[in-house]
Amino acid sequence: MACGRACLILQRRLATSAAAERVSAAEVRSWRSTLFSKEQERQRSLYPRIEKIEVTMQGAGVQGTLLVMNKGLSTPYSCSRHLTDWHVSSAALALVDGEPWHLHRPLTRSCSLTLLTFKDANPQLPNQAYWRSCAALLGQVLEGAFKEEYNVELLRIPEVPVTAGAFCCDFVLDPQLDAWIPTEESLRSFTRDANQLIHQNLPWEPLEVAPPVALEIFSHSRCKQEEVEEKAAQSPNGTVSLYRCGHHVVLAGGPLVGRTGLCSQYEVTALHTVGEGPWGLQRRAQGLSLPVNLTAHHTVWRRLKQRAEKLVEIDSSVASETETTPTSSEATSSSSQP
């Protein structure tokens, strides 16, 4: 009930603000998160009675272990807690009957389950999920880094391989900031903000939703609505994958890792101006990270960082228009003051 009342208040606020005043970034985040919670509660209510399922564990040391779990409630993370502390802390992703599965996504049938870590013999899937998660974290930082009077439009997260040398997040700033040039202190500030989220060890909560739900959540953004329609059209079951970290809701092209605390070394390395796009002057933020327990010597890290500073080329169309800007210190919030 509380969630429903909050939704109604926000809906009225957002509906009237177009004529009265611009909706703040904080209000948009609250709107998204509230609707996410509402749909999450609706989906949980689909399993009013506890039904048992059998989960057969796969992998070294747990091969053939049988767990009896709760349908629609238990997750791969729940299963890891029945094993060892190492499984709880090391698991980054799961395979359910061979399908990549987020650690906090409920299990809906009896299945085989493999917990994946970054130290597996073939860590390709967790590495891809990690790179995608680092980009999502960067978007979360950028969305909250500027003062409330400036809009930050996050574009789709580019799917780049780990071999590209940097994860990326494309975005468009308020037209007033088109001439803004980030400084080294700006990048350090973004890095500090990211590390604060990492230290909080926040979960990435997954939610599969029907397109109308996703369109309502992103009702303020034409760019995101187009992305929702494209992802729904490409999805075998017609749904869209959403993830929430704190109050930040993101669309993802694949599974993310379980929590921000799996990130270790993390640095925002560059912010490039890509060119004019359909939504405005498009920029590309880039970063470099290693997961927990996989640190690099400072000389190796320096070489990796130099590579991550170079623009990652992505085949995408860009176009739009520029205007004037305040200085870096005028544009950013007090928590991210370049």
Rank of each mutant, 00 (worst) to 15 (best):
L142G: 02
E313C: 11
G254D: 15
P212V: 09
T65G: 03
P158T: 06
Y266D: 04
R156T: 15
W301H: 06
A6S: 09
L304Q: 04
G64L: 06
F171C: 04
Q58A: 07
T322Y: 03
G287T: 05
Y130E: 01
A214V: 08
R192E: 08
V96G: 02
S90P: 02
W131H: 10
Y266P: 00
H102D: 15
Q176L: 08
H220Q: 13
S74V: 03
R303C: 12
Q176H: 07
G61L: 09
W279F: 15
T16I: 10
P182I: 01
H297E: 15
L103F: 06
T239M: 04
Q140V: 03
Q286W: 08
A92P: 00
A145P: 03
Q200C: 12
A210D: 06
K310Y: 10
P291E: 07
G258C: 05
E184H: 03
S329R: 13
S289E: 08
C79P: 06
P278Q: 11
Q63L: 06
S186F: 03
Y266Q: 01
V160F: 10
G98A: 09
Q11N: 08
S17M: 08
A129I: 01
A25Y: 07
H87I: 04
T163M: 07
R132E: 14
N122P: 04
V160P: 03
A145K: 00
T299D: 12
I157P: 01
L103G: 02
L271H: 03
C111S: 12
T322H: 06
T332Y: 10
P106N: 07
V228D: 00
S30P: 00
C79V: 13
I9Q: 10
W101S: 05
H82P: 09
G280V: 00
E99Q: 14
L115E: 01
A331Y: 00
T163E: 15
V209S: 02
A18D: 07
P291A: 09
G4M: 11
Q124K: 14
A308K: 01
T183D: 05
A331K: 00
A2C: 12
A94M: 10
M57W: 07
D170I: 05
C7D: 10
G238F: 07
A135R: 01
V96S: 02
Q43V: 02
P182A: 12
T260L: 06
C168K: 00
Y150T: 05
E149W: 09
A145M: 05
E321R: 07
P123A: 06
R303E: 15
R222H: 13
E184K: 05
L93N: 02
D97L: 04
L103I: 07
Q63W: 07
K71E: 09
E41L: 15
M69P: 00
G280D: 03
A166N: 05
A270Y: 01
R283I: 03
F190A: 00
R22W: 12
S37D: 15
L271M: 15
W31E: 04
S133Y: 09
R5E: 15
A136V: 11
E267F: 08
T117A: 05
L10S: 04
E229D: 08
D85F: 07
D85R: 13
P158H: 05
V318S: 11
E149P: 03
S219K: 03
T16E: 13
T324R: 11
T324M: 11
H102E: 14
S334C: 08
F36K: 00
F218D: 00
E143H: 10
